[in-house]
Computed example of a mutant assay.
Amino acid sequence: MDIAPMMALVIALALFFDFTNGFHDTANAMATPIATGAITPRKAVALAAILNLVGAFVSNEVAKTISGGIIREGVDGVHIAPEIIFAGLIGAVVWNMLTWLRGLPSSSSHALFGGLIGAAVVGVGPHSVDFATVVSKVILPAMAAPLVAGTSAWACTRLAYALTARRDPQTGQKRHQGRAAFRAGQVFTSSLVALSHGTNDAQKTMGIVTLALISGGVQAPGSDPQWWVITVCAAAIALGTYAGGWRIIRTVGAGLTEVRPAQGFSAEASTAAAILASSHLGFALSTTHVASGSVIGSGLGRRGTSIHWGTVGRITLGWILTLPAAAIVGGLAAMAVGLGPAGVVAVAVCALAAISSMFVVNRRRPVGHRNVVEVQEAAAAVGFPVRFKRSRESEAAQ
């Protein structure tokens, strides 16, 4: 197969992955302000889309990690053909769509890494992957980030409640004050998360497109993403973010814990800090891991709240399976594309059929901006029985 058509196919698939990354990860920034009523669902996703677009132009350190770190393109005679990148993207897209359908906030980043690693190992060999970089810049940050963000969110939540607690002058009992001001703060912190998401996740697709251009001999190894690559990747993730990803928004906003404004503010501030730091260091961090860890930590920080540990367990299992599952799909796709043009067509047709069927299943029980804040359905999306339903009056009071 000619390089030019294959490269065009790879770039198109990479941009579709970028689109799925956008709607898959909208929840990271906007789930908690939507759940607390700080901002309406439609305004939330529009704001997140704009800030993702802006954030994509801020840094390219993560893109360098993808295009010249994990895969040894041009090193020790390793050459990653566009077909291999195509196979890796198939693994990432299929896993992204499956977890979106289930409402599980899995990592788009790790789906991408898994698909690429599986395809490279099968199509080229284990020597084509820099496993030291995988461990230092992917696996270790993935393990540490939820714990660090969760601990930070726990401390911020405890501090927020301590500073705003007052004692009744007659009884001496502690009573809460109206914490509605945190809702306004949530709009700011969630915007910061959306901006930081653009600085990290959009870079991953930029790295993939750059790797494809390098593999096709269009761009020199080790060079930065070109301006048009940055622009189209930024636009794709922004459009995906505007699409919503409502199923995952419900899970993060209400399926993990009952979120109040002070918690949401603390969770989002911790998430933004962790992601911005990782983007500066070039760590290809999962914003999903960070955001989920922050929400759980904020729930633990508020006395009297409950964590839906069944949902947490299912999400954690999804995190564990993401890398190997995407790697298996990517590896199988690499075996097929190794057969030639017929194999590439067969993989493309099978992937298109799988993705289309998921969209059909989604239409049977659609989730949109009108029913995204229903607590029962948020837990039902991941099969967890709800034991409570928050009233708007209670939420407003706290």
Rank of each mutant, 00 (worst) to 15 (best):
W154K: 08
H24K: 03
A14I: 03
P126A: 11
V62P: 09
L53P: 09
P146G: 00
F23A: 09
G37Y: 00
Y161P: 00
A56L: 12
R158A: 04
P126Q: 02
G88S: 14
I139F: 08
I70M: 13
G68K: 14
A46K: 13
A44W: 08
T65C: 12
A111G: 10
G69A: 03
L112N: 10
A111L: 02
I70G: 02
L47H: 12
L47E: 07
S59M: 14
V134E: 07
A27F: 01
A44Q: 10
T32W: 00
N96R: 11
A63R: 15
A87M: 08
L47D: 04
I70P: 15
G123A: 01
V75M: 09
D130E: 08
F86E: 03
L89Q: 10
A29E: 00
A27W: 02
I34L: 06
G68P: 07
V78M: 07
T157E: 05
I34A: 08
G114L: 09
N96P: 04
M97Y: 04
G103A: 06
G68V: 07
T65S: 14
E83F: 07
V121A: 03
W154G: 05
G88Y: 12
V129C: 04
F19L: 08
L47A: 14
S107Q: 07
I80K: 02
H110F: 08
A81K: 12
L159P: 03
I70L: 15
G114I: 14
A38Q: 09
G69F: 04
D130L: 05
V94N: 07
A87T: 13
A120D: 01
G74R: 11
F57P: 09
H110T: 10
V94W: 06
R42T: 08
G68E: 09
I39C: 09
H79A: 15
L13Y: 01
T20V: 10
D18C: 12
R158L: 02
N60C: 13
I139E: 03
G69V: 05
A132H: 15
Y161T: 01
F23E: 01
T32Q: 00
V148E: 00
K137E: 03
A63K: 14
H127M: 10
V135P: 14
G91I: 09
I117E: 03
A38Y: 11
G77H: 04
L159Y: 03
K64Y: 15
A111Q: 12
R72S: 12
K43T: 02
S128D: 03
S109C: 11
A132L: 13
I117T: 13
N96K: 13
L51I: 11
A119K: 12
K137W: 02
G115L: 02
I90K: 10
L140N: 09
A155H: 06
P126G: 04
G114D: 02
S109V: 02
A46V: 11
G77F: 06
S67V: 12
V78G: 07
V129M: 10
V138L: 13
A27V: 05
T151L: 10
T36M: 05
L13P: 04
A29Q: 00
F17D: 08
L140T: 08
L98I: 15
V54Q: 14
I117F: 07
V94K: 06
N96W: 00
M143Q: 01
S107V: 06
M143G: 04
L116P: 05
A92P: 13
V124S: 02
P82K: 00
S106L: 12
P141S: 01
A56Y: 10
D25G: 02
N52Y: 09
